[in-house]
């Protein structure tokens, strides 16, 4: 599974490699991206350099993570303005290896219907299984997907939550391998907590899933926040690793969607329109 990537779309994207705070300073680190072995190194000033062999690669440091691009970046990394808000806790919650393609992992992140069955007692609980109608749009200017008015019953929506609520969600897909979730903040009704999933496609069927949590929460410790996200990610893992095929099929007749999957339908269509090849099974022409 390590044939080099020849997909120009994937080669032109920014990809996350590691949480900057987790990189030991002044020592070479190794990882893989799009089937390619890479080396990266953090200097004393917290600046990270990334190399493909001896070739230096472009670097962006954003949202707690170091990002690189194997080709020529088609555009700057997407905006996540909440990250800069002064009263937010920004926590790099975990980096987890999962044997699945990046698009399958994005779709799972966009899915509410699995909460009662996979995140039982935390993000959902039976019999409260209904996924109500919600809105999805493709914002052509920003080239990103937005799903709004997503409502789901949650027994414990976040590390700082106690008791069940009808949680409000907004999902953004600003990047084929990244998604950002905004959800009602249990401690401040006027604000939204942010959970972002940044996927590093190690190869077509393996990812490192990086999580960023950006919350208004004065009570939970960083440790609580990280452990909560690690639990959620690890609950998804056996599902993702048991999906067949591991790459996301873009043919509309590959799988059976329901109304709750509206955002996934738009996501698959969007990937198709981009001509993305890496991590998907393209639709027959």
């Amino acid at each position: 599974m390590s044939t080099p990537c020849s997909d120009p779309v994937a080669l032109g994207l920014w990809h996350p490699l590691a949480a900057i705070e987790d990189i030991p300073p002044s020592s070479d680190q190794h990882t893989r991206l799009l089937g390619q072995a890479l080396r990266y190194r953090k200097d004393a000033g917290n600046q990270v350099a990334v190399f493909d062999g001896d070739r230096p690669l472009p670097v962006t440091q954003a949202y707690g993570y170091v990002w690189t691009c194997l080709g020529t970046p088609a555009r700057p990394l997407f905006d996540l303005p909440e990250y800069a808000e002064p009263d937010r806790r920004n926590v790099c919650a975990a980096t987890v290896g999962v044997r699945v393609s990046a698009p399958r992992a994005v779709e799972n992140f966009l899915d509410m219907g699995h909460f009662p069955f996979v995140h039982t007692g935390i993000l959902g609980v039976e019999p409260h299984t209904e996924v109500r109608e919600y809105q999805v749009e493709l914002n052509e200017d920003k080239d990103e997907i937005l799903a709004t008015e997503c409502i789901f019953y949650q027994p414990q929506a976040a590390a700082g939550a106690s008791g069940g609520i009808m949680a409000d969600y907004i999902y953004r897909v600003p990047h084929p391998y990244c998604s950002v979730l905004y959800k009602s903040c249990p401690t401040d009704e006027s604000r939204l907590d942010v959970i972002a999933l940044f996927l590093q496609p190690v190869d077509e069927e393996t990812v490192r899933a990086h999580a960023l949590v950006s919350v208004i929460d004065t009570q939970s410790s960083d440790l609580d926040i990280r452990l909560f996200q690690q639990t959620i990610f690890s609950q998804d893992k056996p599902i993702l690793e048991n999906q067949l095929p591991k790459r996301l099929p873009l043919d509309p007749r590959a799988e059976t969607p329901i109304r709750a999957d509206k955002v996934a339908i738009v996501y698959r269509r969007w990937l198709r329109a981009k001509g993305l090849q890496y991590g998907v099974i393209p639709a027959a022409a």
Binding site: E107, I239, N242, Q243, L244, P245, P249, E255, T256, P257, I258
Partner: peptide, 8 residues
């Protein structure tokens, strides 16, 4: 595989 999302 479940024909919804391909899960075993």
């Amino acid at each position: 595989r479940c024909l919804h999302r391909g899960v075993r």
